[in-house]
Amino acid sequence: MDWGIYLITAQPPGMNEAEVIRSSVEYAQRAEALGYSRAWVLEHHFTRYGLVGSPLTHAAFLLGRTNRIKVGTAINVLPLEHPARVAEEVALLDHLSGGRFILGVGRGAFRKDYQVFGGDMTRNREMIAEAMDVLVAAWTQPEVAGTGEFYPFPSVEVLPKPLTKPHPIVYSASQSPDSVRWAARRGMPLLMNYTLTDEAKLAHLEYYAEAAMEAGHDPTRVPHALSFLAGTSRDGNVIRRQSAEHLAWWLEEYVTATLMFTPEWDAVKGYEWYRRHWEEMVMRNEHRPMDRVERYFALNPIGSPQECIDKLGKTLEMTGLKHAILAFEAAGEPSAVKDSMELFTAEVLPALDPGMKQRTAASMALA
């Protein structure tokens, strides 16, 4: 198994910006010491839902402050960037880190980002496809020219070429069927969302596999990653109480920041799947913050060690996947997050991955 952590970097009431950002560095360093193989940073703008507007900057700093753990972006909102510059920055990070950087990309779901930085949100599916073409060509060809509609530029030699050959792995945060099919046709692994039921995750994987095979890719060789909100305490009710208020705030901050669930959003094409998903939650009377908290408690390993073992084990067995990313910041307050991470690593992970205890001991010896 590959175990990773998410660095959410949200700023809830009662925490200042310095504490949030400092804590993210501490979480990554502790994850490395505990034997985790990957840390994933996020991109958000103009919201306390997440303070990191530059995931590449965040990743670069963490790579410089660690020695073994890989650091990935989950995600870079690729349509907001020029792909030639992203190609340069990713290749440079690949060299500086000795191949420890992972790129994750997506379209993003926050209207204000596009309003401020530019770009037609209704066409960002086309934009990300064109940007990925530029990235791959920039990394693998002597020169690349922007010949598409969105990123026209003359033929140039993009340097440096990546250390990792043919190029660093690129993950896709895809949830809607169209996005899953797009990723599958390119052979890009998925970052699977924590909001999905096990049955939905399995359906995504089956749909991906069919599209990947049609495009000539072997889906059994694609290293998809599962995402989870996570946390544990001896008494499962303790971690649920610690997490409930924070998650309710965080989920409501998302709804406020994304501007997705407003009447104006109906005019934005390309996000119909998200609107249907939200409408279904409303129809089930599960759209209020605490309703969603209870739903996500049911879907994610937050509880006693045994409850987490059972829940996480069921998902791993059903999907057959070997990479899981855990968002311990569900607990909110930094000391609670650290305590939860320590106990989860000591008691939950070895029950599912017997080699984890040995890797933790080896990593602790190097810390």
Results as ranks from 00 to 15, higher is better:
265 W>P: 00
222 V>S: 11
114 Y>N: 04
219 P>H: 10
159 L>D: 02
328 F>G: 02
35 G>R: 01
154 P>W: 00
13 P>S: 12
350 P>W: 02
286 E>C: 13
90 V>R: 06
21 I>E: 13
136 V>A: 05
305 P>I: 12
257 A>G: 13
48 R>K: 14
140 T>G: 08
148 G>M: 03
93 L>P: 04
336 A>K: 05
95 H>W: 14
346 A>N: 02
299 L>Q: 09
11 Q>P: 02
177 P>R: 07
205 L>I: 11
13 P>T: 14
194 Y>S: 10
183 A>K: 07
298 A>W: 11
170 V>F: 09
125 R>K: 15
127 M>W: 06
89 E>R: 15
210 E>T: 10
55 P>K: 13
330 A>F: 01
197 T>Y: 05
15 M>C: 09
123 R>D: 10
274 Y>D: 09
135 L>W: 02
171 Y>I: 05
148 G>R: 06
351 A>M: 02
106 G>D: 02
72 G>I: 09
308 C>N: 12
354 P>L: 06
48 R>I: 01
320 G>V: 11
239 I>L: 11
231 G>K: 03
178 D>P: 01
187 G>M: 10
35 G>I: 01
98 G>Y: 06
104 G>T: 13
311 K>G: 10
172 S>F: 13
227 S>H: 14
104 G>W: 09
233 S>V: 00
127 M>D: 01
161 K>F: 07
211 A>H: 11
168 P>A: 11
178 D>K: 14
150 F>G: 02
92 L>K: 05
181 R>N: 03
319 T>E: 06
78 L>K: 10
104 G>K: 11
141 Q>I: 01
323 H>S: 02
84 A>K: 09
186 R>A: 03
293 V>N: 12
49 Y>L: 07
97 S>F: 08
314 K>M: 13
4 G>W: 01
31 A>I: 00
128 I>R: 03
319 T>D: 08
74 A>Q: 02
7 L>W: 04
22 R>D: 15
309 I>L: 09
112 K>T: 13
143 E>R: 15
106 G>T: 12
165 K>A: 10
339 D>M: 11
354 P>Q: 12
33 A>I: 00
240 R>H: 10
80 L>F: 14
120 D>Y: 01
347 E>P: 03
205 L>F: 08
104 G>C: 06
234 R>G: 12
179 S>D: 08
93 L>G: 09
205 L>N: 07
30 R>W: 03
202 L>Y: 02
178 D>F: 04
275 R>W: 12
277 H>T: 11
91 A>P: 04
366 L>C: 01
168 P>D: 11
363 S>A: 15
311 K>P: 04
300 N>L: 14
320 G>C: 08
308 C>G: 06
358 Q>Y: 06
54 S>C: 10
159 L>T: 07
133 D>P: 09
276 R>K: 14
48 R>D: 15
44 H>R: 13
139 W>I: 08
138 A>D: 00
130 E>D: 03
69 I>V: 13
235 D>T: 00
45 H>D: 11
300 N>K: 10
28 A>G: 12
52 V>W: 09
289 P>C: 12
275 R>H: 14
319 T>V: 10
156 V>Q: 07
296 Y>W: 15
225 A>V: 12
309 I>Q: 08
264 E>G: 14
164 T>H: 11
298 A>Q: 12
126 E>D: 15
